[in-house]
């Protein structure tokens, strides 16, 4: 049996969105970037090639709520940290029957039953006083261990990250 928390590839496939697109930014496909920065679970940042982020997910194969692990991580990697509000983190447990036949069979083999618990951090685009809409971006230039999240006007492709002042790819 696998260590509690680790999410095997079969379950990752069952959980992943099919074809996420970059809404209200560039409409290009978003890709899930797996980061090894948080253990024991699966941390994934869904972002477009221009760095716009739709959601950050952290999953553990465990019944326990992993929010307490994700919250300090995103706070430590976001400028400013006050952008990360507790109420924007939301838990969802998946038990198996709602994940398709393969994942259902896989999860049914484990006793006592263990759900996959996912925490979503989603920062919705917001308007500043001058009317400019800001949204969340990510910079991977610091390496996947030291990913940086920041906000910038939502109509910009690849805005400069405040930490490295270079353009994200």
């Amino acid at each position: 049996m696998r260590r509690t928390g680790v999410v095997p590839p079969l379950l990752r496939r069952a959980l992943a969105p099919r074809t996420p697109h970059c809404h209200r930014h560039c409409d290009r496909p978003q890709r899930g970037h797996n980061l090894r920065a948080l253990a024991p679970g699966w941390l994934c940042v869904y972002a477009c090639p221009g760095g716009a982020v739709s959601v950050i997910t952290y999953s553990e194969w465990s019944n326990a709520d992993p929010t307490a692990r994700l919250l300090p991580f995103v706070r430590a990697h976001t400028t400013p940290a006050t952008l990360v509000r507790r109420r924007d983190l939301r838990l969802a447990r998946r038990h198996g029957p709602e994940l398709g036949a393969e994942a259902e069979r896989y999860l049914a083999r484990v006793h006592p039953p263990r759900a996959v618990s996912t925490v979503y951090w989603r920062l919705y685009p917001f308007k500043k006083k001058d009317g400019t809409v800001f949204r969340l971006f990510v910079c991977f230039r610091h390496g996947t261990e030291r990913v940086q999240f920041f906000v910038a006007p939502g109509n910009i492709m690849s805005p400069p990250c405040p930490k490295c002042r270079v353009r994200t790819r």
């Binding site: 198996g96 029957p97 709602e98 398709g100 036949a101 259902e104 069979r105 049914a108």
Partner: peptide, 8 residues
């Protein structure tokens, strides 16, 4: 998936 699950 839930509606066609083995569980159901």
């Amino acid at each position: 998936d839930l509606l066609r699950s083995a569980w159901l």
